[in-house]
Simulated scan of single mutants.
Amino acid sequence: MVTTNGLYSVEDIDVETAKVYVKENGFISAVGHEATAEILSEILESSIPMNRIQFQQEVGQIAIIFKLNIRPDEGVILNKEEIHKVGFSLKKMLRIE
């Protein structure tokens, strides 16, 4: 999710690459749903808390994006099993300017 105006670079990344970014750079969680936080904690092998904050990505800052393979119907909140069923990918989003 783009949090503020700017120029961004977005690319697919795998779980191992995401783990390296988290380990080397630390992170600020802006994960808004508990099931997503639980899945990210499992796959990244780090405690990723749910944290519904207003966040603005800074120039030069990398964000790891959790993207569902589908868009759920309005008002639907998926649980862990449903998220695994529809699938997801990870993206690296770098704010360039």
Score class of each variant (00 low, 15 high):
residue 58 E to H: 10
residue 88 F to C: 05
residue 10 V to H: 01
residue 96 I to M: 14
residue 48 I to H: 03
residue 44 L to I: 10
residue 9 S to P: 00
residue 72 P to C: 01
residue 86 V to P: 00
residue 81 E to L: 05
residue 77 I to T: 07
residue 76 V to D: 03
residue 5 N to Q: 12
residue 44 L to M: 10
residue 68 L to H: 00
residue 16 E to C: 07
residue 27 F to Q: 04
residue 39 I to W: 00
residue 55 F to N: 00
residue 51 N to F: 06
residue 19 K to V: 03
residue 85 K to T: 12
residue 17 T to G: 11
residue 58 E to G: 05
residue 80 K to A: 08
residue 31 V to Q: 00
residue 64 I to M: 06
residue 45 E to N: 15
residue 37 A to T: 04
residue 93 M to V: 11
residue 2 V to L: 13
residue 36 T to I: 13
residue 19 K to P: 00
residue 85 K to G: 03
residue 69 N to P: 05
residue 37 A to Y: 03
residue 38 E to V: 09
residue 81 E to T: 10
residue 57 Q to G: 01
residue 25 N to L: 14
residue 86 V to D: 08
residue 59 V to D: 15
residue 19 K to C: 06
residue 39 I to R: 02
residue 32 G to Y: 06
residue 75 G to C: 03
residue 32 G to V: 06
residue 52 R to D: 10
residue 29 S to T: 06
residue 32 G to D: 13
residue 8 Y to H: 04
residue 26 G to N: 07
residue 29 S to M: 06
residue 77 I to L: 14
residue 9 S to V: 08
residue 73 D to M: 04
residue 44 L to K: 11
residue 70 I to C: 07
residue 18 A to D: 00
residue 67 K to F: 09
residue 23 K to F: 12
residue 57 Q to E: 04
residue 72 P to W: 04
residue 67 K to D: 14
residue 32 G to A: 08
residue 48 I to R: 04
residue 92 K to S: 06
residue 15 V to Y: 03
residue 46 S to W: 07
residue 15 V to G: 10
residue 87 G to I: 08
residue 78 L to Y: 01
residue 88 F to Y: 15
residue 85 K to N: 14
residue 68 L to W: 02
residue 35 A to P: 04
residue 17 T to D: 09
residue 62 I to Q: 02
residue 75 G to K: 02
residue 37 A to Q: 02
residue 86 V to W: 02
residue 53 I to S: 04
residue 94 L to V: 10
residue 19 K to Q: 09
residue 76 V to G: 03
residue 57 Q to K: 08
residue 4 T to N: 10
residue 50 M to P: 03
residue 27 F to C: 12
residue 71 R to M: 15
residue 8 Y to F: 14
residue 97 E to T: 14
residue 12 D to C: 11
residue 14 D to N: 14
residue 40 L to Q: 00
residue 60 G to C: 07
residue 74 E to V: 10
residue 17 T to W: 01
residue 28 I to W: 00
residue 52 R to M: 05
residue 89 S to P: 01
residue 24 E to M: 08
residue 26 G to A: 06
residue 3 T to F: 00
residue 24 E to W: 01
residue 5 N to G: 11
residue 31 V to N: 02
residue 19 K to A: 00
residue 96 I to C: 12
residue 16 E to N: 13
residue 32 G to M: 05
residue 62 I to Y: 06
residue 82 E to G: 08
residue 17 T to C: 05
residue 80 K to G: 13
residue 2 V to E: 13
residue 29 S to N: 05
residue 13 I to V: 12
residue 40 L to S: 01
residue 35 A to N: 11
residue 55 F to Q: 00
residue 36 T to S: 15
residue 90 L to Q: 01
residue 20 V to G: 04
residue 91 K to I: 09
residue 91 K to M: 13
residue 16 E to R: 10
residue 5 N to S: 12
residue 92 K to E: 12
residue 11 E to A: 14
residue 74 E to A: 13
residue 54 Q to N: 15
residue 63 A to E: 02
residue 13 I to F: 12
residue 78 L to R: 04
